[in-house]
Simulated assay, not measured.
Amino acid sequence: MSILFSSEDGWILSHLDYMHKIYENVQYEDSYETLKFKDNFFKINSQFSRQNQIENGNTDKEVKPRKKKRKLNVLPEDVLQQKNFVKEMSEKILKDIKNQKLFVNIITDDNRQSRLESRNFYIERSDLNSNYHGMNEKDVAIIAEFRSEKYVFPNNCEFYCYDIKHIREKLNMARKYDFIVLDPPWWNKSIRRKKAQFRESSYNMMYNEELMEIPIGDLLSTNGIVAVWCTNSASQIKSVLEDIFPAWNVIFRAKWYWLKVTQSGKPVCNYNESHGKQPYEQLIIGSTATVNVNVPDKKVIISVPSAIHSHKPPLIELFKSYLPEHPQCLEIFARYLLPGWISWGLEVLKFQHLSLYNFTKVSHVDKGPGSKGNI
């Protein structure tokens, strides 16, 4: 289970625990292995520092908002209310688990281990060329070689690495999904400026008009739910609600918030009273227009984030009670695979590379017929 705590206000998740759980039993050649995702990626022990602080070695000081000569552009009232809501609800949740020791006070080092591990990963690993399709049809996770590199594939998974414009021709459009998750590469001026300098930010961004063309409405089942990860950009959220959802024939149902915290439970950055980075992201939830899916509004998800760019926490356990017993699930713009899911994205195997995992147990097993997945 990735859910460490649940209340009417939200949840505390462990992304790392979930990654460990799905790879407890992995078939590799003549043995079964237990894989552990490298925990250095989740050693977020300090608030995030700005890049200039890291370069100047000023990372021990508390991160404070930048001083500006001109008057601060204060957030609109509705955005301030949203910020205050996330702050109040998260503090309430953290107060409820104060005695459970889910978060601990540890020595801070400005996340040096996690930053180093992440940077080394991007230096050493290059993305696979696009245009491939594969699956693991076995009921057990496997380690297999693909294009001269070793990857781990969860059980009963299928994946497509193609440009999103090819989804109609590559994906079986007759198949309907009960749950679709999207983490779009939103067009972003800041990311655009960083592309040349930071390789981890160099994904291909998409305009909202391109997102509207994805045939989500044709892929959703009658009672299907769609969840879209979104930044705190007011224009992007407005586009989801007023343009993208209607184009998909989807009705807005709820908005959840993912608060990113350090290992001690503190937000990874300060809450900002003006336009600037917040410690949370948003999850916009909708459903097919023909039914009223009973998904509660205004929930807060709290977890320690991965140091790897766009490595979002798993959502399936949070949505189980709103889905059929054996839901058909699809992730678009996926960067890692999930058991039983179909995943689509140009970086779909990015976090499946074996270099991201440690072996912790080896036991002999006889290889039976069909022991290799269809990769």
Rank of each mutant, 00 (worst) to 15 (best):
S2G: 12
F5V: 11
S14E: 03
M19C: 05
Q27E: 07
S31H: 07
S31I: 04
L35E: 06
F42A: 03
Q47F: 01
Q51P: 15
I54Y: 12
I54C: 10
N56M: 03
T59Y: 02
E62N: 15
K68A: 08
K71T: 15
E77H: 09
L80K: 09
N84Y: 02
V86G: 00
K87C: 12
E88H: 14
E88I: 10
S90G: 10
E91H: 12
K92W: 05
L94S: 01
Q100V: 06
T108Y: 00
D109A: 04
N111S: 09
S114I: 06
S126R: 04
S126Y: 09
D127K: 02
L128D: 13
A141R: 10
A144I: 02
Y151W: 04
P154W: 00
D163S: 13
K165G: 01
L171D: 00
K176T: 07
F179W: 04
V181G: 04
W187C: 13
K189D: 09
I191F: 03
R193E: 02
K195S: 05
R199F: 05
Y203F: 11
E213P: 00
G224T: 03
W229F: 12
A234H: 10
S235D: 15
E242K: 14
W248L: 11
W256H: 01
Y257S: 06
Y257P: 02
K260H: 15
V261F: 05
S264E: 13
G276W: 04
Q282T: 11
A289L: 15
T290M: 09
I301T: 06
I302P: 02
H309S: 14
K312V: 08
F319L: 03
Q328P: 11
S343F: 01
E347D: 15
E347K: 08
F351V: 10
S355Q: 14
Y357M: 04
K361R: 13
V362P: 00
S363I: 15
D366I: 13
G368W: 08
N374D: 11
